[in-house]
Amino acid sequence: MSTRTITLQVNGKTVTAAVEPRLHLADFLRDRQLLTGTHIGCEHGVCGACTLEIDGAPARSCITYAATCDGASVRTIEDFDADPVMAELRAAFSAEHALQCGYCTPGMLATARDIVLRLPQADEARIRKELSGNLCRCTGYVGIVRAIKRVLAARKEKTHAA
């Protein structure tokens, strides 16, 4: 089987690589780009650990093949250091004990950031619904839900004050 040459943006940098079509994006990022912040859990699209951003929207990198990402812009957890929403989420995750082992956390943060930006009015029920595609086996979700609520509330207050 032949390889394909792809060119894509990874965390703002242009990357050109030859890939086997069967190589999924998470393996491409971890093994070829050495970006190990993207975690692989179930590897069939159920657990959400590998969730990252493709062209500005969250997606599962384990069931997305690198070959299909030619021309795409991919952002992994490593690219969000300077992101203001992610900074608020990191602080809230720490304050609310929203992680223990940390395996689900990169995917949780990718989904959490999408909730904060897309659904600023989300209540607890909506947050839980939106989080249902990301599994956490440590926390029981309570801390994660609280962390997202905390960020949403703080941002609402800021909007009112402004």
Binding site: H24, C62, T68
Partner: peptide, 26 residues
Amino acid sequence: VIAGGQSLGPMLNLRLAQPQLLVDVR
């Protein structure tokens, strides 16, 4: 044929589907 791959992706990874060619229609 593959479009979003949200059903076919898992089937490929689990080797329930083993096509020789994927035709991406996106």
